[in-house]
Design a protein around this nucleic acid. Structure first.
Lengths: 339, 339
DNA sequence: TGCAGGAGCTATACCGGTTTATCACTTCAG
DNA sequence: CTGAAGTGATAAACCGGTATAGCTCCTGCA
């Protein structure tokens, strides 16, 4: 016989289906002797619960979802999502909960997916990434009563659980480092302005100006693409008083910026220091290798998974977990400015 | 009332559950008038099938799986998987079938996942990537009777369906191009030797030697990492009769190779031409931008999804779909050799 | 007029678990 | 000795669909 059911086990053990269910789920209602016997038979028949049957009776599905709303073209270059997904799975696999991954075009499509998942009972909860200012997904999820955890930002008015790193401190550590090297004219090539973390980073740079006695520290927003990263760099380096250091909000933009500098005959790190806010193999493949801020994205994902499971078990719970601070990995692209 | 069920619809329409099921699934058994009325009521109550309930009655789960057995660290750098996943989803979403994605450490773990998925009825079929010579997964899947489609290689002795591109022709187009430029000493930095596509590419290079009158065309295998790509390049460029062109099996290795060349004072494309077998944003960010072989991975995924659905519907069917040939995108890293 | 056959629908079993009501039996307090 | 409480189990309902046997008309044809 293929795939044994609890009825088969019940037959073999000479007990009822109910008893088997109790035994397999570790709940009271059977004696220790009977429980042991049932467990042994189940093991021997290599029984596994039929996920659909379980989802039907109870309301849990043992599955959580992650929707990424970005054009596929821009995905995959940064290892961020690959690491995040691995970390999530590591946190989920302990309780053999599966992860549904979906890549969609925009936020509207993402919300539509949440609707569908909810009505089809496909997931117990979801993970939110790329939080924007006044993010419409927060309200949508609350309306659906779908448990969720926000990654990389606070979950609105204490509503959704969140797992986040301190972007502000991280940015300050970069600016402090550059200032300590002697840089006074620093520029910041930022990401999409409506992302929350972009705003936090911009604010951090601005606030550091008076404290460190910087002459200037403009933040220029982009769409995170290599094209805009390059264009913005070209603009910055063409100025009369060009910056002696540039901080990029992503590794891809930093690499593009390095290319522009080389093209314009600006030597790195001689005439210009470059720092990437995100680390990846990309920054290490360059010549010179880029100084970058490294985060433990895998661990980030693991923690997010744990928080999500807690929220699913207890939806009223409010968790805001701050993860380990990212650290600056100094490589060859930063040096004191030439006087 | 939350989540309406077909019983609710049946009540409202004044018919039986069975009639509603017939109507919603477009099967005969109800009149057109009744069908229209039921569909309208379902629409108005915004009914969606409960995926678990459906999976329980019928045997399909409307979900397929993709397991990637690679260390997470090496994932995500290449956009290959992001594009593949997007393409798969595009092919699946038409019939609202979801994709389970799992990243594991090695092939043993991967096979274990297939076992679990089968016994828990979590997927209707799976997609196989990174096919190796004498791949143990083929036999495992056959034993489990789990429908599958192999990506990028033939499915063994006509057993599994497959979707593949012609690596041989692709490699020949690269070597032909380099030979036409005048190169006679070409090297090939290959990937993991036990991957089927690696072997096909090596064979293609070897077979081209006499036809094109090449002096030499060694293939050196690596583990696909940037480190081994760099080390192999260093070895090749230190030889007495060093090659005038190098073909790399991945974009990451090509970039690493470019770095080594720059470091050794070998100018590209002046002293050395470089071609990457895989294209991505990486190759375009470099200076010089790398000539690379571009594949439509998204389309590849879409087709794989379609084939998988066919195989699920008809497990005995044998499909071997050859996809569009990859094309060579010529950029700045290739030129005729200096005499 | 009788009957075969099909369209249109209902009632019901079923999928594989979980949960609840119930019951037999033991134990212990009064 | 009786009643109450507790233990270990069972039978049956239930979750939300799908599949199927069967029933009631209606039509067509001999």
């Amino acid at each position: 016989m293929a795939r044994p059911t609890i009825a088969d086990i019940a037959d073999k053990a000479g007990v009822s289906k109910g008893a088997v269910s109790f035994a397999l789920n570790g709940r009271p209602g059977v004696s220790d002797a009977t429980r042991a016997r049932i467990l042994q038979i189940a093991e021997q028949m290599s029984w596994r619960p039929h996920s659909a049957a379980r989802a039907l009776g109870a309301s849990r599905v043992d599955s959580v979802g992650l929707v990424i709303a970005r054009p596929a073209r821009t995905l995959g270059v940064e290892p961020f999502f690959a690491h995040l997904v691995s970390g999530l799975q590591s946190g989920l696999s302990a309780r053999s909960i599966s992860l549904q991954l979906l890549i969609v075009e925009d936020t509207d499509a993402e919300i539509e997916v949440y609707r569908r998942w909810t009505s089809e009972h496909r997931v117990d909860g979801v993970i939110l990434v790329d939080l924007t200012v006044k993010d419409p997904r927060i309200e949508a999820l609350r309306a659906l009563e779908l448990p969720a955890v926000v990654i990389g930002g606070r979950g609105g008015k204490g509503a959704l659980a969140s797992v986040w790193a301190d972007d502000r401190d991280a940015m300050l550590s970069i600016v402090d480092y550059l200032a300590a090297l002697g840089h006074r004219r620093i520029a910041h090539v930022a990401g999409t302005p409506n992302f929350q973390h972009t705003q936090r980073r911009i604010r951090a740079v601005r606030d550091a100006v008076p404290r460190l006695g910087l002459l200037d520290a403009p933040s220029l927003t982009t769409d995170f693409s290599d094209a805009e990263g390059a264009a913005t760099t070209r603009k910055l380096l063409s100025q009369a008083n060009r910056p002696t250091a540039i901080v990029y909000d992503s590794d891809v933009m930093a690499v593009a910026g390095l290319g522009v500098a080389m093209e314009m005959g600006v030597s790195v790190p001689g005439d210009l220091s470059i720092v990437a806010f995100d680390d990846s193999i990309l920054t290490q493949l360059m010549h010179p290798a880029l100084t970058a801020l490294s985060r433990d994205t895998f661990e980030f994902g693991r923690q997010a998974a744990e928080v999500l499971l807690e929220v699913i078990a207890e939806p009223t719970k409010v968790i805001n977990l701050r993860t380990a601070d990212p650290v600056l990995t100094v490589r060859e692209s930063t040096a004191p400015p030439t006087p």
